[in-house]
Write a protein that binds this DNA or RNA. Structure first.
Length: 602
RNA sequence: GGUCCCGUAGCUCAACCGGAUAGAGCAACUGCCUUCUAAGCAGUAGGUUACAGGUUCGAAUCCUGUCGGGAUCACCA
């Protein structure tokens, strides 16, 4: 039963009956009633005064009366100015609740999840370079992509999570060169460093040595621009890139070895933060793709060739510029590759939608890419979406890898887990836990807090990462939501001891009164399907995060106001237990969509 | 300079594509632990929604302009 729909249908009826006017249901808008007024749904009458021929208040009165007298949903109503606040009767809320509980019990899918809609969606996220470890910016990317994938899956899509690893190019050669020069055969095992960090170490090493070279050369009178180009180290890196492209055995071997280290490091990080991919693409396999697409476009007259032989696309008609697609020497640029990769993905997994989770500094690039694909008449072009997320700033400003102001992902996670441990130990509630159990909990809380912190902000917006604040476990945070779950778990444990049957979800029909906070929570539960579909449609995990918080907050209100086990009426007692169990289940589901686990005790 | 994004409480973020007295959390202050977990709850204080116009019953939201911040406009990825 969908309350909104029913109310709308009755409002429509009211218009027909009272004003002889046809008002289609889908034109009617309801909004949640503000907390300070009684009611749950509000209908705004201002726009309809012309139809009703009365002022907003009187119209609201009339419609409200009609709904109360003629319908079965609205138990009461009140009018404030032109706002008609509708109070849905307690019996209806109970009925709704039973339906939700039944759905959770019987359905193969949890309440609010959609059956397969037969559509496929590919989500690309993470997409790291193999010359340095993952950092905070990647984490926002990864958590967004992972949560989004879960949400789409719950909405009925078949999802394929992919990761396109940038494993070749000049930046990789830089760490390789530095390793050759200064590495002395070091390995992750011998150095006791994760492979990705080891590669990163040599990337930094290169940059340091390179800067020194440039400085020395400029000191001898060479202009700095020339020095940067002619530095032996830079020349060596460029030379190595050519060797790599020609398949030089020695270079290839080193490249494989170092990349392997890096993958091991990445895998450890992915596992530690609880994310996974269905398929990993490597740029070394795809970087040559796209040239045939360029040929094709040239043949179709969509692209054009300049005198020097380079190939371009003219997007001035679309309000953009001309864009280079292939250099005069026939080599690719970034977008060439992406054109080819787009085709390849589609062949690999014929999707209805494809989402690229990529930072907003690449807005222009994706705008160009999508316009070109459209011009080429690719059938999938309309289904592609760039989930453009904002940068993560630090209190000190933007993260700059060259200035060493990046926040390393592994360090950050470790720090969060440590803080969780300190806080938990200070509270002293889990002294009977084994060391393993405790460690699991710290990890759950630490990573949960971090994920939630990064996910609760609108993805499109630039956000600030304040280490002090991210480490907070009070208020609008994952630990608060996890805590609510743990609280309910305690209730359920006790209820089980008392032999209360949670599976009976039907026998509450005759219950008289619902606590207002209970009603509020049921309303939230009832809204879940809409929230989920909206969040998936708008590619916005932050909506889901907000929902989880609202639910936990509202339940906590109920929790402090109502003492469950003081209830004398066995039916009412059972109801509160079942009610709590449903809330716990919903919290668990929503958090799982966000990629966050939830503890039984904390 | 062109294009795009952003500007909301001291700080971090909301506000359901135009609705009521702009809401949460943090920080500050006040209460509440012998009861199912106080990582909680209730309350006080904090706002000219950058600024100026416009559109209308009604604007943080839409339009115009100004100011401020950011991204991008590479034959880098």
């Amino acid at each position: 039963m969908d309350i909104e729909k029913q109310i709308k249908s009755q409002i429509s009826e009211a218009f027909t009956s009272l004003y002889a006017h046809t008002l289609p249901e889908d034109e009617i808008k309801l909004q949640p009633t503000r907390r300070e007024f009684a009611g749950s749904h509000t209908f705004v009458t201002f726009p309809y005064t012309r139809i009703t021929g009365k002022n907003p208040q009187d119209s609201a009165q009339e419609i409200g009366r009609y709904l109360k007298d003629k319908g079965s949903i609205v138990g009461n109503f009140n009018v404030v100015k032109g706002f008609l606040n509708l109070e849905v009767s307690g019996a209806v809320w109970l009925h709704i609740f039973s339906e939700i509980a039944e759905a959770n019990k019987q359905g193969e899918l949890p309440f609010g999840y959609q059956k397969s809609n037969g559509q496929k969606v590919m989500v690309e996220f993470s997409s790291p370079n193999t010359n340095k470890p993952l950092h905070l910016g990647h984490l926002r990317n990864i958590f967004l992509g992972y949560a989004l994938s879960n949400m789409l899956e719950a909405s009925g899509y078949t999802v394929r999570k992919v990761n396109l690893v940038n494993d070749r190019g000049i930046h990789i050669c830089k760490s390789m060169i530095a390793y050759q020069r200064f590495g002395k055969g070091e390995t992750p095992a011998s150095a006791g460093i994760k492979g990705d960090h080891l590669a990163g170490k040599y990337y930094v090493r290169f940059d340091k040595a390179y800067k020194q070279e440039v400085q020395e050369m400029t000191a001898q009178g060479m202009p700095s621009e020339q020095a940067r180009k002619e530095s032996p180290l830079m020349l060596a890196a460029q030379h190595m890139l050519r060797q790599w492209e020609q398949g030089d055995p020695e270079v290839t071997a080193l490249w494989k070895t170092m990349n392997h280290w890096v993958y091991e490091g990445f895998d450890a990080t992915y596992q530690n933060i609880g994310v996974s991919f269905d398929k990993i693409y490597y740029e070394s396999d795809t970087y040559l793709l796209g040239k045939n697409v360029v040929e094709e476009g040239l043949g179709k007259g969509v692209f054009f060739q300049k005198d020097d032989g380079s190939i371009w696309v003219d997007l001035t008609g679309e309000g953009l510029d001309q864009k280079l697609l292939l250099r005069a020497d026939g080599t690719s640029v970034y977008i060439t590759q992406d054109l080819g990769t787009a085709d390849m993905r589609y062949q690999d997994f014929p999707f209805d939608q494809s989402v690229y989770v990529v930072g907003n500094e690449q807005d222009y690039h994706f705008e160009v890419l999508f316009k070109i694909l459209k011009k080429l008449g690719r059938p999938y072009a309309d289904g592609i979406y760039h989930l453009s997320y904002g940068m993560v700033d630090l209190p000190s400003g933007r993260m700059k890898s060259r200035e060493g102001t990046v926040v390393d992902a592994d360090d950050l996670v470790a720090e969060m887990v440590r803080t969780a441990q300190a806080q938990t130990e200070a509270l002293g509630k889990i002294e009977d836990f084994t060391a393993t159990q405790a460690q699991e909990l710290y990890h759950m809380l630490g990573t949960g807090a971090l994920k939630y912190f990064l996910l609760r902000v609108d993805p499109r917006k630039r956000m600030l990462f304040d280490p002090e604040e991210s480490v907070q476990f009070q208020g609008n945070t994952a630990p608060f939501i996890q805590y609510t779950y743990a609280r309910i778990s305690a209730i359920l444990r006790k209820a089980a001891e008392m032999g209360i049957d949670i599976s009976d979800t039907q026998s509450f029909a005759s219950m008289s009164a619902l606590h207002p906070a209970e009603q509020e929570v049921i309303r939230l539960l009832h809204e879940f399907p809409q929230k989920l579909s909206a969040a998936a449609r708008e590619y916005s995990p932050s909506l889901m995060a907000q929902y989880a918080y609202d639910l936990a907050k509202e339940y906590n209100r109920f929790y402090t106001e109502v003492s469950i086990f003081n209830e004398k009426d066995p039916q009412a007692l059972a109801f509160r237990v079942v009610f709590s169990a449903q809330v716990a289940q919903m919290i668990n589901q929503v958090m799982r969509l966000l990629g966050i686990q939830v503890p039984e005790r904390m």
